[in-house]
Amino acid sequence: MNCADLNEALVDLVDGRLDGAERRDVERHLEGCAECRALVEDLRSIRAAAFMLDRREPNAGAWPKLQAAVASEPAPRGRLLMMTGRGNWPVWLGAAAALILATVIGVMPLMNRAPQTHDDSAQAGDPNEPATVESVTAEFAAAEKHYQKAIDDLQTIANKDTGELDPNVAAVLQKNLGVIDQAIAESREALKSQPSSANAQNGLFDALRTKVALLQQTVELINEMRKGNQAEAGRRVQTLAQ
């Protein structure tokens, strides 16, 4: 993969939705290309800042004005009747909790990964150039920093609004993040004993990616709940469940 090829995958990469072989190709390219790493980091900063833009509220008189305008309209069928109370809170919260639990199940293999017993450092780095332990470690550190930045941005957003989640969902979420953090810690330990092991590096990347994905899903869910947007929140659950 070269810089031009990366362009195709940038949106999915920044959105945390790149899977499989393509994701590995992109990561391999990013490990060796500071310019593309810088670009990805900037695009992630823009995405995080966009999500945190201020919410503007419509003028308080907007609804009464609209109500008056609608009253003078012929109704789609019949006439507007007396205004009454609002509907109930969504029924999909249980589905959201189940979805987050499903994410934990996806993370469990990371927890159970056996430590690598063979030296697989030959798999790391650019196959055209001889890799040294120092160069591979430096490239890996840069890529890891790149993930950590994404996690920090998302964590900031999620922490800000987690209080608005249903307490049961929030509790499950915290538990799941704890499981992932444990997987990250174990992966780091494995990497410490074999710094140039591609398998150990991939293990840590898998764990970091999982955390990015869960935080992104959480932020999207919070986004819908924060706005009281019942129908779209339900659709968000549907999207997450795919």
């Binding site: 919410r55 503007r56 509220e57 419509p58 907007a62 609804w63 609209l66 109500q67 609608v70 109704a75 789609p76 069928r77 019949g78 006439r79 507007l80 009747l81 007396m82 205004m83 009454t84 109370g85 609002r86 509907g87 706005k227 009281g228 947007n229 019942q230 129908a231």
Partner: peptide
């Protein structure tokens, strides 16, 4: 809304107006 329920139209407004 089609049957003339004003509360239903208000619910639609409350759900989506801010966004």
């Amino acid at each position: 809304i089609k049957s003339g329920d004003g509360a239903a139209f208000e619910a639609l407004y409350r759900q989506h107006a801010t966004r």
